[in-house]
Amino acid sequence: MSVDIKTTARSQVTFRAIAAHAILITYTLIALFPVFVIVINSFKSRKAIFREPLSVPTPETFSLKGYETVLKQGDFVLYFQNSLVVTVASLTMVLLFGAMAAFALSEYRFRGNLLTGLYLAIGIMIPIRLGTVAILEMMVASGLVNTLTALILVYTAQGLPLAIFILTEFMQGISDDLKNAGRIDGLSEYTIFGVLVLPLIRPALATVAVFTMIPIWNDLWFPLILAPAEETKTITLGAQVFIGQFVTDWNAVLASLSLAIIPVLVLYLIFSRQLIKGITAGAVK
Rank of each mutant, 00 (worst) to 15 (best):
V3R: 10
V3L: 08
I5N: 07
K6G: 04
T8R: 14
T8C: 06
R10H: 06
Q12R: 15
T14Q: 11
T14I: 13
F15S: 12
A17E: 12
A17R: 15
A19W: 09
A22G: 15
L24G: 06
T26W: 11
T26C: 11
T26E: 02
T28V: 04
L32K: 10
L32V: 11
V35Y: 15
I38C: 11
I40T: 15
S42G: 09
R46Y: 12
K47P: 10
I49T: 10
E52T: 15
E52S: 14
E52V: 12
P57L: 04
T58P: 09
E60Q: 13
L64F: 15
K65G: 10
Y67K: 04
E68W: 12
E68L: 08
E68C: 01
T69H: 03
T69L: 09
K72F: 06
K72G: 06
D75L: 05
D75V: 09
Y79C: 02
F80L: 03
V85G: 00
V86S: 00
A89L: 02
S90V: 02
M93T: 14
V94K: 00
G98N: 02
A104M: 07
S106W: 01
F110A: 10
N113H: 04
L115H: 05
L120H: 06
A121M: 01
G123F: 01
G131N: 07
V133E: 04
I135K: 07
M138L: 10
A141F: 03
G143E: 07
L144Q: 08
L151S: 01
I152G: 00
I152T: 01
Q158Y: 15
L162H: 02
L162T: 09
L162V: 08
A163F: 09
F165M: 08
T168H: 06
F170H: 06
M171E: 05
M171P: 10
M171F: 05
M171R: 04
M171G: 09
D177P: 05
D177H: 11
D177G: 15
D177Q: 15
L178R: 03
A181R: 12
G182A: 12
G186K: 11
G186A: 13
L187P: 03
S188I: 10
E189T: 14
T191M: 13
F193I: 10
G194L: 08
A204P: 11
A204W: 08
T207V: 13
T207R: 02
V208H: 01
P215E: 04
N218D: 14
L224H: 14
I225P: 06
E231I: 10
T236E: 05
L237E: 00
G238C: 03
G238L: 01
A239C: 04
I243H: 03
I243K: 04
G244M: 02
V247K: 11
T248K: 02
W250E: 03
A252D: 02
V253H: 07
L254V: 02
A255S: 01
L259F: 14
P263A: 11
V264M: 14
V264N: 14
F271S: 01
F271G: 05
Q274W: 08
Q274N: 08
L275A: 05
I279P: 05
K285V: 12
